[in-house]
Amino acid sequence: MPARVHDTRVIAREERAPGVMMVTIQAPALSAAVFPGQFVMAELPSGCAAAVALAIYDAYDDIVSLLFFITGPRTRELAALAAGDSLALLGPLGNGFDLRDAPADVAIAAGGVGIASVLLPARELVRRRSRVRLFYGARSAALLVERERFVQAGCEVTLATEDGSEGLRGYVTDALEASAPAKLLLACGPTPMLRAVAQIATRTRVPAQLCLEETFGCGVGGCWGCVVPVAATSPRAPRFPSNEAGISYARICREGPVFMAEELRW
């Protein structure tokens, strides 16, 4: 089903950790249309700034849940939504993860709010009988929200915290690197983490799909505000002349947000 504006209603809002919000919404058509790795643009109730791009954390029955960090005034406004409030969501948007192969052994790396993009692919892969290992890192134990949900979904979960308050002390990529290579790697998190994941993928020759985070303008490909350098030969490179180095800029919101690690030239 094509993306469109969904006028939805908030059912629940919960602060899962300091500054980490879960907003649950009744949105049957949206829930039915979502692919793992897609996102929505959430319209601010005040309407006085651009909509906010949010990962679709979960979608089942007629429910969609959005998990996000409060990072500024716009996300603070969304965090103030209460049960019963209406919320316009544009979506689902973006290409999502390519899970057609569903190999036997899949590793998923999530850093911080990146966890919000990987529950749906994890669940889908488990359903298709892949072994799914989640490597989940955050600054501290309190920010490792929703880990039990991944255990329930059938994932093997390895945790890492930068302050050592839980799991391995260090980055999630340290935990990933210390483990046996999988057949497919999915990752979502801050750009430095994704770069590190891309390096691990190259070194271990594992194909990696990276879900990129960026500040969006329109979220639908109209403004070219969220680009990433890709090889001009990439299937996701826009049909566009490339520069002398064979690089083209792809829109994260439109050609992404999921890219193969090897097509990125960042």
Binding site: M41, L44, G47, A50, L90, C218, G219, V220, G222
Partner: peptide, 8 residues
């Protein structure tokens, strides 16, 4: 820019 708030 208002189209980025809501395309309607």
């Amino acid at each position: 820019t208002a189209n980025f708030t809501d395309p309607r």
